[in-house]
Design a protein around this nucleic acid. Structure first.
Lengths: 109, 109
DNA sequence: CTACTAAATGAGTATATGCTCATATACAGG
DNA sequence: CCTGTATATGAGCATATACTCATTTAGTAG
């Protein structure tokens, strides 16, 4: 993490980013956008969250620079603006799988 | 994120992991352990958090499998158990730097 | 203009969690 | 045994934030 030369406040910025990803609802939204942009109504259907809730989470994700917004008439389309999201999630995923595999193996001994 | 074939509850597990990393104090502890194990007293000094606070965060990190524990007499030494932590933080860091650079550049135009 | 639809937001509540203080536990050395 | 030191933990408080409901804002169509 190059802890040495981190400017003060950097850790808070990094933590803030992790915190945005620390909500299952937001991860669901990200997952729903994996194959391309969707408008809010479509995201409500895909995630089974309420419209108000989806709207707030989209705001959080957009402010964090993870999503982008595009207005088209009445609709607002959201899309993944930060591709590194998938790298992050994949890293966590593979780690989780290792942990679970290790746990499963320790049953046998 | 392979949103397709994620077992139910997987997103909650992933989010939980991100949430653990979503606290600056915990990131400070991780950073303090980058160069090798430390005991609790050393971590208190390194982070300037209270002993009780450090102890709780260490518990959180250890339960998440990110840190390991080793007792030696009265002291308990903690160490990084999950090297992928640094990959995660580096990914976030480089993304942040890009965002900041872009913001800085947009001042000039 | 009015009526309708999509999205955002203000307000209130509930819950989670970070922090501190005090105390408990675990171990070492007389 | 008693004393001291390192770490963990119970309890309480304060804050952050996820959620819902109701309403507002923005845009379209008649």
């Amino acid at each position: 993490m190059k802890a040495n030369k981190l400017p003060p406040g950097a850790l808070e910025l990094i933590a803030a980013r992790f915190r945005v990803l620390g909500e299952p609802s937001r991860l669901r939204l990200i997952a729903a956008l994996e194959k391309g942009e969707k408008n809010v109504t479509e995201l409500v259907e895909a995630t089974e969250l309420t419209q108000a809730n989806v709207s707030r989470h989209l705001q959080t994700l957009t402010e964090a620079g993870m999503l982008g917004r595009r207005k088209e008439g009445l609709n607002v389309y959201y899309f993944i603006a930060d591709k590194s999201l998938f790298e992050l999630c994949d890293l966590v995923c593979s780690r989780l799988q290792k942990d679970l595999a290790a746990k499963a193996a320790s049953f046998g001994k």
